[in-house]
Nucleic acid binder design. Structure first.
Lengths: 176, 176
DNA sequence: CCACAACGTGGCATATTGTCGCATCCCCTG
DNA sequence: CAGGGGATGCGACAATATGCCACGTTGTGG
């Protein structure tokens, strides 16, 4: 039986993940920081883990490294608010099996766990086209917004644009 | 003595890299596609390689995988036009030691070769703040522009904006 | 030499943004 | 319960930015 460890400092998000996994029949355990996660890894011996990168105190990267020392078989997927190439490569080098940018739905996460290396074929055939400026903008907005718990004022501040402008962008691209 | 293999389908960029490495005292060899690179790997036995991800025919990812089969000690850095988390994690899983987005200058590349895992400490202390919208936009423009050999008309098309608009953005953010 | 593609530039109509103000809602605390 | 603080939605208006067309220039290849 698979047992999944969920690590995220943000209660709401962690519980949402938790419910989703339970609904799919998985056994779960949760932690909100490095120390808690390490303790649970020792006690519960999970077989899979979903780890948020950004946490108060010790980072998710360090958790990946240390957890694998005491549980080498653990399969870890790292989640992060803003995907950064640097942290992604670092996480993989430390032994994580995948790295996803929030918002990641459960299906994506499960796919990341199962997925070994079938991405290659796609990458080979697919012609790599640059995303449009508008698309890049939109995706970044979504990431920051998720990181601010959909707090528009906060997100606007971090994005360096006016709150009114963010409102209008959101309205425009989310018609329904 | 270190011997570096440079793989990029684009002559201009490859030669620029080549000159820069030679100027720094490295021995180099170059290839413009998968087959050429594999042949040279066998013959010349380079110790390091810089591989462009996007090439006509077989992808740089496949090259990473196959080259490491015949030269397990080879240290490979992957370069790419548009940094994508998915391809970055894939490259690392296949055995590349680092993954950089163009435009990457030689110093960055050399740093990537030397750099083992000292990134961790920074990531731990640094508070991860989202980049502003303007910054994300600018970086994306730079990547696409580089991919179009600074062809403004072409880049504008791919970005989904008007050529005149791109011109104005470039003028605005590159004042000198 | 000509065709072609890309560049820089100006002008102008239209679209987007910044800024302010205001009403509302929610949460917390005295 | 009243009041303060913070978030939200929205209207209005001026300041900017953008799309679009046109023209002249330059470099390249047939």
């Amino acid at each position: 039986m698979e047992k999944i460890l969920l690590v995220d400092d943000e209660d709401f998000f962690r519980e949402r993940l938790n419910r989703a996994f339970i609904r799919r029949g998985y056994t779960t355990c949760t932690a909100s920081c490095y120390d808690e996660a390490m303790a649970i890894t020792r006690k519960e011996q999970p077989t899979m883990a979903v780890v948020d990168l950004k946490m108060p105190g010790k980072s998710g990267l360090l958790l990946v490294k240390d957890a694998l020392v005491i549980a080498p078989e653990l399969r870890i997927v790292v989640l992060t608010g803003y995907g950064s190439i640097a942290t992604a490569t670092e996480a993989i080098k430390l032994g994580a099996i995948s790295y996803l940018a929030k918002p990641a739905d459960i299906d994506e996460i499960l796919k990341a766990f199962s997925n070994d290396s079938n991405l290659e074929l796609e990458s080979l055939t697919e012609d790599i086209l640059p995303p449009s400026l508008a698309r890049v903008e939109w995706e970044h907005i979504q990431r920051v917004l998720a990181d601010c718990d959909d707090n528009i004022s906060c997100a606007a501040k971090r994005l360096g644009i006016h709150r009114r402008t963010l409102q209008r962008k959101l309205y425009k691209y989310a018609p329904k």
